[in-house]
Computed example of a mutant assay.
Amino acid sequence: MQNIEAILKQFGLEVPKEQSEDFRKVFHENYKTVKDYEKVESDRDKWKGQAETAEETLKRFDGVDLETMQAELDTWKQKAETAENDYKQKIYDRDFSDALKTEMESIKFSSEAAKKAVMTEIKESGLKLKDGKILGLSDLIGQIKERDASAFVDEQSEKAKQQAARFTTPGTGRSTGGTGIMTKDDIMKIKDPSERQAAIAQNLNLFGKGE
């Protein structure tokens, strides 16, 4: 784009050099280029459009009770918070149940009903889950065992029964004289004290008083 001095020169008009600076100053103070006017016009149209949009938006609020609107906004905000908290609680409950199920796999219960009752009590106890572990679970299970031992399998008693069964069942590999029934001598030859006591308990008839 040509400046004003070049345009004037095309028409045979020339500003003296000593007045050139003053001429440019006066010119720019009083006139704008087409580009300047186009920018102003563009800015005017943009702000005009925004003003019209704002006016249309405000028209939609005509007759609206602002207090009612605020109350509705607060209600929806509360509903959103409640939904978010419910979601977090469901995730927590799921993780708690998974952790509890894993812990219960190592415990023997007397029945499935007993297991469900114990798990329900644990869930309702208020114990907290942290890093995949249920805090205070061992202590609570210990308290439940003291209060209701029948809900659990007595592992020591169970072990003794299993060991005793080994000595009264044919084909155990122990010497029973070929009859499948242990004799007093067979029992006394058992080296493991716990096994020997279990065998004695199963064959008390072989051990009279004073023997």
Rank of each mutant, 00 (worst) to 15 (best):
K184Q: 14
L135T: 12
S125W: 01
I190C: 04
E105W: 01
S111E: 07
M119E: 07
F167H: 13
I134P: 08
E124I: 03
L135K: 11
K161V: 13
I144N: 00
K115S: 14
G142R: 01
T176D: 15
N85D: 15
V118K: 05
Y87M: 13
K145W: 00
D192F: 02
G173L: 02
G173C: 06
F96V: 03
F109I: 05
M119K: 10
D185I: 06
T176W: 12
D131L: 04
T183E: 13
I134R: 11
T183I: 05
A83K: 12
P170I: 11
D86P: 02
K159Q: 07
D192L: 01
A114P: 04
D93K: 08
G142Q: 05
K191H: 05
K88A: 15
T169Q: 14
K191S: 10
D192V: 09
L129E: 02
L137E: 07
L135A: 10
L100H: 09
F96W: 10
D131G: 10
T169M: 12
L100T: 04
L127W: 07
K133I: 08
P170S: 15
K116W: 06
S111T: 11
F167T: 08
A151Q: 11
V153K: 10
T82M: 14
L100A: 05
Q89L: 13
G178Y: 04
D185V: 13
D185M: 09
F109V: 11
R147A: 12
Q163W: 10
E112S: 14
L100M: 07
D95Y: 03
P170V: 11
E84Q: 11
D148R: 06
K108N: 07
V153L: 10
K108Y: 05
I91T: 05
K77F: 13
K128H: 03
E146L: 02
E158I: 00
K130P: 00
L140N: 01
G180Y: 03
L129A: 06
D186A: 14
G132L: 05
D86T: 12
R147G: 01
D95C: 00
L127P: 01
G171T: 10
A149G: 06
T102C: 02
A149F: 06
F167D: 09
I181F: 11
T120R: 10
E155T: 10
D148G: 01
E103Q: 05
G132H: 06
Q162Y: 07
S97C: 03
Q156C: 02
K133M: 08
W76Y: 14
Q156Y: 02
S106M: 08
F96T: 03
D154F: 01
A151R: 11
E158N: 12
E84G: 05
